[in-house]
Design a protein around this nucleic acid. Structure first.
Length: 288
DNA sequence: CGTAGATCCTGTTAGC
DNA sequence: TGCTAACAGGATCTAC
């Protein structure tokens, strides 16, 4: 599942393969993938064709291509991969993938960019950007731990202001971005904190430690090219990452905790699965 | 505003 | 063997 490290791997692929090129053709299949582009697929195509791609940017799990539009107004093609979205750099004429939703052709006639998404939780939209270069729908997303202007102490305070479970707070992209279910479970395991503890009841140092582990585990995953275990996530060349071999808690139910040997448990929380060590991460009192 | 829960989607897997 | 149900989960929406 694409969380920050996986999205960053894709961003780097776009910077390498797409930046500096000019869009000369675009095709969108179906309307769902452009549902966030309210003016519809044809309007999106019209805006893209003729635009130059200046660079590839990211905040949290949001990704965008910075465009040099013909009219000179700063704009971006915002891409969210959702759960199963992939960006592929493909040879023109390669057979269409089953869940191909959009493709972009470039002036140099080289490899094209394809958006493939099995579940279509992801999508594409053309957006104006503000004077800091942030596209409209990304403005409410908090800075992620890799942002040079990330303020760890401010995030600690924001999380500790919440009365909800600390895992829910970690997954709230308006407080800190980039963390999804996998890295939330891993960070909480490393910190030895159960995700159902109320955020506001955790000490400042504990919250600092959880966030530090989140940053650290995502950095390690990025080094290994991201996490993937069902081939849904791939980078722009179609290759998967290897970080799933390094997971300690997520998806490890029944396996021994790498720290104490107790079997990792799996629980349902927020309509998702949560994984933790019963010994290292005791549940707070009063939870079933 | 904060909080909690439902919802979108489809391929794969578990269980009867 | 063949069917149904559960499962994966990021972001948004609704209700309170």
């Amino acid at each position: 599942m694409p969380e920050l490290p996986e999205v960053e791997v894709v961003r780097r692929g776009l910077a390498e393969h797409v930046a500096g090129r000019t869009v000369t053709g675009a095709e969108v299949f179906g309307a769902r993938v452009t549902r966030r582009h309210l003016a519809g697929p044809q309007d999106l195509i019209d805006r893209l064709v003729g635009s130059g791609v200046a660079s590839a940017a990211r905040r949290g799990k949001y990704l965008w291509l910075v465009l040099d539009s013909p009219d000179g107004h700063p704009a971006a093609l915002v891409i969210h991969l959702g759960m199963s979205g992939q960006l592929l750099v493909s040879d023109p004429g390669a057979p269409y993938e089953k869940h191909l939703h959009a493709r972009l052709e470039f002036a140099d006639g080289g490899r094209e960019l394809r958006f493939v998404d099995q579940r279509t939780f992801g999508g594409l939209s053309w957006e104006e950007v503000d004077d800091e270069g942030i596209p409209d729908p990304v403005r409410h997303i908090a800075r992620d731990p890799f942002d040079p202007r990330y303020d760890a102490e401010a995030v600690v305070a924001a999380l500790r202001a919440r009365r909800s479970a600390v895992k829910r707070a970690l997954l709230d992209q308006t407080l800190v971005s980039g963390i999804g279910n996998i890295y939330a479970d891993e960070a909480l395991w490393r910190a030895g904190v159960h995700g159902e503890r109320v955020a506001a009841t955790l000490s400042r140092p504990t919250m600092r430690r959880i966030l530090g582990h989140a940053h650290e585990v995502m950095a390690e995953a990025l080094d290994q090219g991201g996490t993937s275990f069902d081939a849904l996530y791939v980078n722009v060349n179609g290759a998967s990452g290897y970080f799933d071999r390094s997971l300690s808690a997520y998806g490890q139910q029944g396996r021994p905790c790498p720290r104490c040997g107790t079997a990792i448990r799996r629980e349902s929380f927020m309509n998702r699965s949560s994984h933790s060590c019963p010994r290292c991460q005791p549940k707070p009192a009063g939870t079933a």
